[in-house]
Design a protein around this nucleic acid. Structure first.
Lengths: 345, 345
DNA sequence: GCGCTTTCTGAATGCGCTTTCACGCTAGGA
DNA sequence: TCCTAGCGTGAAAGCGCATTCAGAAAGCGC
C-alpha cells in the first residue's frame, strides 16, 4: 500500500539523536532510560507522528494483540448481541477484534480460520452452532489443531462435538424444555414447530429439549408438525406460510429462534390470524426487539452480551495443558403477551 | 503467544529439499518453478500444516490485506446493516475486516484508528456520523492525515466536515424534507421531533431537512417540540415519555432514527395511546425490523447494505492524487401504517 | 586516588518472509 | 563448435522492531 515510506523507529532515533535501541526502550518503557533522552525521543515521535509497525513488533517477538471472531452473520441480532459482549471484553483486555461473517458457508469459515492463523491471532472465537457434518468437522479440526499446537487459543459459543476447545454453551435443551413446560401448563396440547436446518446443533438441541418438555406433559409432537426452513426472518415467514397452507392444526407455534418468530408473526398477521387470540407464538433467544413487537414475544432469554464476554474471557485466560472447559449458560423463560391459554381451555 | 515455534517457510524448504526462495516462489506462484519441485514444496507445506506468517509477509513488502471498520455500535441494526455490506464487499476483494465499536466514545475512536494505523491496515472505514466538535476534529485529523500520507485509504459513511476523505453520504436532509412533505400532505400540522444528540451531524441534517420540508408547507416547528435524547431505543423511549409528560401537542411524531422510534412506540403504547389512530409516528433508516412492528413504521429507507458496499469500494479503489469523492445515496420515503391523516381532517 | 559494582547506552542479531542479484544450465543461431 | 539468450535456481539483503551483549559512564568504599 505504501507510497511514501512510513516513519520508522530509526527516523525517530535519528531525530532524537539517540540510538535505535534507546528509542525503542524509551517508547516501550521496558528499561530505564535517562529522562532527558526519553523526553527527546517522545518529542521526536510525537512530532513525526510515529506509529510503531505492529507487524514488525509481532515479528520481533512482541505480543500479538488481536483476536478473531467468526460468526454466521453480524447483522443477525443474536450475533450482534454476542459480538457486543466480545468487543466490550476485548476492549478491556486491550485486544483488537477482527470480526468476520461466514454467511453460513462452511468453506468460508475454514478460510477465515486460515487467515486468522496467518495473522497469528492470539485467539480465535467461533460463535454459533456447529454443523453436524463429519467432513466439515474434519476440515475444521485440520485448521484448529495446528493452531492450538502453535499456542493459539480457541473458544466457541455453542456446541462443537469433536473439537477440543473451551466453550460457552447456552442451555438450549433445558431452555426449550422449560418453555414447553410453561406452554403446556398454559393448557396447550397441539403444537407446531418452526425449525432451522437440522444440520445445526442448536436446532437439534432446542428441538429435542422442546420435545422432552412436551413428553413430560404427555404431549406428543408429530414430525409433520415440524417445518424446517432457513434460520432467518424470511425463513420463519416461509415456514409459517407453509404450515398455514397445510391447514394449521395447533394452538401454539414455537419458532426455534426469535428472528424466525418475527417472520412467523408477519405471516400470521397477513393470513388474518391474530396472536395470541387465534394462535400463541413463542421464540428463543430474547433478542432486544422482541419486546417491542405486537404482541411482545414469549421467549427463552439468553444473556447474549454475557455469552460474548464469557467466551472472550475463556480465550484470554491461559489454559495450557488444562483440559477444555465448558461454561453452561442457562436460559430463562420470559412469558410475554404472545402466549395465552388456548381458546377452548 | 507462542509455546512451540511455528512451522516456517524454512522448515518447508528443508523438507522439500529446495531453497527458501524456491519454496516461497512455489507457494506464491509469482515465478515459474519446475513442476516437480513445486509439487514437492506443496506436499511438504501441506504435510507440515504450514501457514505463512502474515506479519512477516506484510513486513517483507507483501500487500496488506486488512481493512479496519470503526462504527458506533455493531449491535445497532443500522450499523449491522452497513457492516454486512462492508463485509460482503471485503470478502469479494479478498480482504480481512477488523470491526470495532466505539460505543460513541470519541476517545475510543481515536485509539482504534491508531491501532489500525499500527496494523498498517490498507484502509480505514469510519461508519457513522461525525461529531460537530472542533477539538475532536483536530485530534481525528492528526491520526488520519499521517495515515493518508503513508498511503492509507480512508473512507467514511456520513458527513465529516473537515476531513479530506472519500465519503458515502446518505441524503439525510433531502430524505427528511421529503418525509415532512409526505406528512404535511397527509394533513398533519402539529409535529414533535425526537432527536439524537445535536453534536452528531446526522441529527443536525435530518432536523434541518425536516424543518425545511415543513416550512414549504407553511408549518413551523417550535424548538420546544424537539426533544433531545440518546441515539438508542431507550433514548427514544425517554424522549417520548418526556413529551407525553409535557402534554403532547402534536398529531405526528418524527423520530430521527427507527431505533428511537421503536422506543417511542413502546412509550406511546404504555401511555395508552394507539398509533396511528391517536398519533402518527415516523422514523428514519428503514432497518429491517420496523416492517414487523405493529403498526409497521413509516420511515425513510436507506439502502444500508449498499452504503456498506459502496464505502468499501471507495476505499479499495485507488485514488492517489485525485480529490476526495462524495457518493450521495438518496433515501426513499416508505409510507406504512404508522402514519395516517390526523383525526380532525 | 584506585578498583569495584551498578546504570545506562549503542551496535548487532534475528524474527519469517519477499525480492533482487548473480549464476548455472539448456536451447537456438551463427 | 562457440556464443548469446533465456529460464530456473540459490544466496543474500532488508522490511521495522525487540532484545542481547558488551562497553562506557557513573557511583561507591577503601
Amino acid at each position: 500500500m505504501d507510497d511514501r515510506p512510513h516513519v520508522t523507529l530509526e527516523d525517530v532515533a535519528r531525530e532524537a539523536q539517540v540510538s535505535l535501541a534507546t528509542a525503542s526502550r524509551a517508547l516501550n518503557g521496558t528499561t530505564k532510560v535517562r529522562s532527558d533522552l526519553r523526553e527527546r525521543v517522545l518529542a521526536a515521535a510525537n512530532q513525526l507522528a510515529y506509529t510503531p509497525n505492529a507487524h514488525a513488533q509481532a515479528l520481533a517477538g512482541g505480543a500479538h494483540r488481536t483476536v478473531g471472531v467468526i460468526c454466521h452473520d453480524v447483522s443477525d441480532p443474536y450475533f450482534a448481541g454476542i459480538s457486543r459482549g466480545v468487543m466490550r471484553a476485548a476492549d478491556e483486555a486491550g485486544l483488537l477484534v477482527m470480526l468476520a461473517s461466514t454467511f453460513r458457508d462452511p468453506q468460508k469459515e475454514i478460510a477465515y480460520i486460515s487467515m486468522l492463523r496467518a495473522q497469528r491471532a492470539s485467539a480465535i472465537l467461533l460463535v454459533g452452532s456447529g454443523f453436524e457434518d463429519r467432513e466439515w468437522e474434519r476440515a475444521l479440526a485440520a485448521e484448529i489443531e495446528p493452531y492450538q499446537r502453535g499456542g493459539g487459543q480457541v473458544a466457541v459459543v455453542s456446541r462443537h462435538r469433536t473439537l477440543r476447545v473451551d466453550s460457552v454453551q447456552p442451555e438450549n435443551r433445558d431452555g426449550a424444555a422449560e418453555l414447553a413446560r410453561t406452554l403446556t401448563a398454559q393448557g396447550h396440547r397441539r403444537f407446531a414447530v418452526l425449525a432451522g436446518p437440522r444440520a445445526l446443533t442448536t436446532v437439534v438441541d432446542r428441538l429435542r429439549g422442546f420435545r422432552d418438555g412436551l413428553t413430560e406433559a404427555g404431549v406428543e409432537l408429530a414430525e409433520s408438525h415440524i417445518v424446517e426452513a432457513a434460520f432467518t426472518r424470511d425463513g420463519g415467514y416461509a415456514a409459517m406460510s407453509e404450515l398455514l397452507a397445510r391447514g394449521l392444526d395447533a394452538t401454539c407455534v414455537f419458532a426455534v429462534t426469535d428472528v424466525m418468530a418475527m417472520g412467523a408473526l408477519a405471516a400470521l398477521r397477513e393470513s388474518g390470524r391474530s396472536v395470541p387470540e387465534d394462535v400463541s407464538l413463542a421464540g428463543f433467544d430474547d433478542i432486544p426487539v422482541v419486546r417491542d413487537l405486537a404482541p411482545p414475544l414469549t421467549t427463552v432469554a439468553l444473556p447474549l452480551e454475557e455469552l460474548g464476554e464469557k467466551v472472550m474471557e475463556l480465550a484470554v485466560r491461559d489454559n495450557r495443558g488444562k483440559r477444555s472447559r465448558i461454561l453452561r449458560m442457562p436460559g430463562t423463560v420470559v412469558v410475554r403477551e404472545s402466549t395465552i391459554p388456548p381458546a377452548g381451555s
